[in-house]
Amino acid sequence: MNVQLIAHTQLSADFLSQDDEYLYDKVFHEEIAEGQAIALTAIRTCYSANKPTEIVAKEGAKYFGSKASDGGTGTDADRLFRHIFASKHTSTLEHISFTFAIEGVSRTLLAQLTRHRAGFSFSVQSQRYVRMGSDDKIGGFDYVAPGKIDDPEAEAVFIAAMQDAQRKYDELRSLGVSAEDARAVLPNAAATNLVMTANLTALLSFYSKRKPGKGAQKEITELAEALRREVVDAEPWTDQFFEEV
């Protein structure tokens, strides 16, 4: 499995330039994450008389420039984010999205992953258009072994089943069966690749259900952890929310 963040929500140049003396400098020096500025704008728009384009310019110094008034860590903006999260007003975090390349995962995982629909978008490698034959460009289908197939005898049975599926697929194709019909013999273990976009609220919900200790299958718990790492690397202030879900 390989998971890599391709893109995430960033501030526009016009928005950054409207308050050169505060916002641009703070973001440039990484004192404020861009996601934090977006979150503050969305949250305070619900409660402030100021316009969305004015929120950070007029209120940023107050929230980002002072210590958390609840006695917790970070700035008063962090206090506000904690309050919003605790009060479940997390629709305000839906404005922050992340796009990932996810490679080498099983179709079993894909079936589990796509049950999470709200706030997610998927573009998946097609077994109809990408031919999986041994002599095709892909060189035959890859597969992902379930984590619990870990003793030599079980592993041998599993590998034999994968090899047999490949032979049957190749035989069907040699008999003139189309790729879209021959794919019916490919197993749930067959590997696939996808691009996935999700907003922060949706990712937190996904993580709460698929993180280790929740009874999910090993492969998808590994995906949950990989997504978490990518998000937190891009927006470190979100780590506290993953810890709490």
Rank of each mutant, 00 (worst) to 15 (best):
K26Q: 13
H89D: 12
T73I: 07
K67P: 03
N50M: 13
G74D: 01
D76Y: 08
E34T: 00
T90P: 09
G72R: 07
L40K: 01
A42D: 08
D25C: 08
E54N: 14
K62L: 14
G74T: 10
K67F: 03
F28N: 11
S69D: 12
F85G: 04
E31M: 09
D76M: 10
G60D: 04
C46M: 08
D76P: 00
S69M: 03
L80W: 03
F28Y: 10
T41V: 03
S87E: 01
A77T: 02
S66L: 12
A49G: 15
K67V: 10
S91W: 01
T41F: 03
S48K: 06
S66I: 12
Y47M: 12
I38W: 10
T75F: 05
S48M: 07
K62E: 07
A42K: 09
A61G: 12
T73P: 03
Y24G: 02
H29C: 11
G72I: 10
C46L: 09
E34W: 07
G72P: 09
L40P: 11
E54C: 12
V27I: 12
Q36H: 01
Y24S: 13
T90D: 12
G74H: 10
A39P: 09
A39V: 01
A42W: 02
H29Y: 07
E59P: 12
G72H: 00
T41I: 01
E59H: 09
L80S: 05
K62P: 07
R82Y: 06
R79M: 11
S69P: 11
N50Q: 15
V56A: 11
E54S: 15
F85V: 06
F28W: 06
A37C: 01
A57I: 14
I84A: 13
A39Q: 05
A61W: 11
H29W: 06
A33F: 14
K58I: 14
S91L: 09
E31K: 15
H83R: 11
D76V: 08
A37L: 02
E30S: 13
P52G: 08
